[in-house]
Write a protein that binds this DNA or RNA. Structure first.
Length: 113
DNA sequence: TGGCTGACTTTCG
DNA sequence: ACGAAAGCCAGCC
């Protein structure tokens, strides 16, 4: 049973989870939201990351939507920065979409095991 | 105080 | 299978 998430604690929680993402791995907003206990609050994760970029150094480029699509790439310093970083980690981006997304998908619950 | 928006997800048509 | 609409939570005007 996860504790209730409150306001700005969401930021800290999201940061923690995103930082825990192994290099070369990716996850989705819904997965993080589900891990935090707010499966319906996937938008909050994106919103938190949007305000986090530039404030703290977190690999936000490893967080995509459930389709493995780079939905938030426009929010980066440059529209291609997200793809560049992903490729730099050994990932392959094709048409704004991660290749082998299903295989590279990393679930925060896995780090609990 | 009330209402709109948003790096999403799920479901109905 | 594709398209459109609803749902949720928190911040901002």
């Amino acid at each position: 049973m996860q504790p209730k998430i409150t306001r700005k604690d969401y930021f800290q929680d999201v940061y923690e989870v995103v930082k825990l993402i192994p290099k070369g791995r990716v996850t989705s907003y819904g997965a993080i939201a589900n891990y935090l206990g707010a499966k319906q609050g996937a938008r909050m994760v994106g919103w938190a990351l949007g305000h986090s970029h530039g404030v703290v150094d977190i690999p936000a480029h490893r967080v995509l939507n459930r389709e493995g699509r780079l939905t938030g790439r426009l929010q980066f310093a440059t529209p291609t920065l997200m793809q560049e970083r992903l490729e730099a980690e050994g990932l392959i981006v094709e048409s704004d979409r991660i290749k082998n997304w299903d295989d590279l998908f990393w679930d925060p619950a896995e780090q609990l095991i």
